[in-house]
Design a protein around this nucleic acid. Structure first.
Lengths: 285, 285
DNA sequence: ACAGTTTTTGAAAGATTCCTACAAATAAGG
DNA sequence: CCTTATTTGTAGGAATCTTTCAAAAACTGT
């Protein structure tokens, strides 16, 4: 469904390209937007190769020809990574930083959307459905993600709770047993307290699901990891986007659980929704 | 900066087009994706007009020519049309629902990015900077948004706090004075308790910033409203996206505040970041 | 209704862009 | 060092696009 971003594909293929192909790749990657606007002749000249080389390059990446390639490239650019410096500039005014922050969030979401392992998602949904109890743990910014998850998952009639207190987390982890699921959220996956809690939980036979950075200590110790690789905060001004990616992944998981429950479960969700109606001003006034 | 979707533009212009132009428009709108893949000759034939007519049509919509038009159309399709009918289907499997949920979040973010009033953002940044105290209030899902905001804004050395308890909110609102800012987050803007709290706060001379739906009771009573219009949840399975949009808006506001503080404030942020280092496993092990 | 004017439209030729066949050049293998 | 395979470019042809210009249609006022 979601072909991965063309730019990523080219970047990944870079090492396996031959001389003229990689010249073409360089030119395209250095300014993909310009590439979509130039003719095959211009691009060939810029790369210092012949037109057919550019054409062959395009075909290598499953395009019918150069125009088709440009089309696909243009599409990738829309919600794909904007390579151009879209970092917040200290001199930016509202018109500058507002779209940049939205864009960077959108880009990261698109990245993860194309990279996330669907089989892992499935595995996690399985575990959540079978769980006797689910604990959502997180600290700091991930604490509010955990809280949001609780708010979402309690609707499934599962015994869910959420804790952003290290001591509570430790105690609960140590009393966990087989069938309990500890869903641990951490941006870095390197916070000692959090990793220790995961260790304790696993030692007691509980399952640990890590929503965290790949190859981190937390990822290593989890039963299943949902990898979220969000580019490091190079820019002092850019906010941390991983929280938001985490939230969306939790949305995905919740949807997975709902669908697995089947349509006979919908009335239950409806009931919860309706329970809030009396607290609201009606729409027509 | 962010031009509106080409498809919408064409649809809007439809009534003002002449005979052959509208024929072309019809063909394009009926299957925009096919249009991006066909040549000017094919399209002309399909529409029953001449090639130059198609060309003129393209130029009318600010394209350099037909190829350029196709490019722009293709771009619009990525974040535009996909919107339609990308609802989660009860029979979807992981490969189905995962990208859909990411897409719907991304689309909503893009929508708000293009719609949000920059001058309002500026106003709110002003108020936040001048505030004697800032309270972030929210209930339910908005409660965790408020918590996230607290986590973000306390770094600015401002007296910030966060409350997701109605009684606390009421009491604090009633003791507020001029110079206090109550930042109230609500998806619907119609929860009675929340609106009442806003009323109390305003009655005592405090400023109320509403991050909520436009034209809602909460929006009406706020000093400044940041409108977030996220399409109603028509689909039972689609998760609520407004939380995420709210978070990103708070990121924007935080960035605004940081920039307004100027570069001499960066060391302070750095200090907070570094305070967490000892709690982490280092990256090289 | 009709001549004059403006607008809309398409035929045809011209310009551009793209693709294919083939041969030269380079690299790899024995 | 020769053979074979791969890579690269030249040249010409094919397709696509654009412009010009004149015919057709629509509009205007008389």
């Amino acid at each position: 469904m979601h072909s991965q971003n063309l730019i990523n594909i080219i970047t990944d293929a870079l090492p396996g390209l031959n001389k003229s192909e990689s010249k073409v790749a360089q030119v395209i990657l250095s300014d993909p937007d310009a590439a979509t606007r130039s003719s095959i002749a211009t691009l060939a000249k810029k790369a210092g190769v012949s037109e057919p080389s550019v054409n062959r390059f395009c075909k290598r990446f499953n395009a019918a020809g150069f125009p088709d390639f440009k089309l696909k490239l243009a599409k990738s650019l829309v919600s794909g990574i904007r390579f151009v410096n879209r970092n917040v500039d200290p001199n930016d005014d509202v018109d500058g930083y507002t779209p940049k922050i939205f864009d960077s969030t959108i880009n990261n979401l698109a990245l993860v959307r194309d990279k996330i392992s669907h089989s892992r998602v499935n595995q996690v949904v399985d575990k959540l459905i079978q769980a006797k109890r689910i604990y959502f743990f997180g600290l700091g910014a991930s604490g509010s993600v955990a809280r949001d998850a609780e708010n979402k998952f309690f609707r499934f009639n599962l015994p869910v709770s959420c804790h952003d207190d290290v001591l509570m987390q430790r105690m609960l982890a140590s009393t966990g047993t087989t069938g309990d699921v500890f869903f641990i959220i951490s941006h870095t996956g390197r916070t000692k307290e959090v990793v220790e809690v995961a260790e304790i939980a696993r030692a007691n036979g509980s399952a640990v699901i890590g929503l965290t950075a790949p190859k981190s200590p937390l990822a290593d110790i989890s039963s299943v990891t949902l990898d979220v690789e969000v580019p490091e905060n190079t820019d002092e001004y850019m906010p941390m986007t991983s929280r938001i990616v985490h939230l969306v992944i939790l949305d995905v998981l919740a949807t997975g659980v709902t669908l697995r429950r089947g349509p006979e479960f919908l009335p239950h969700l409806e009931k919860i929704k309706n329970s809030l109606k009396p607290t609201r001003y009606s729409k027509d006034n």
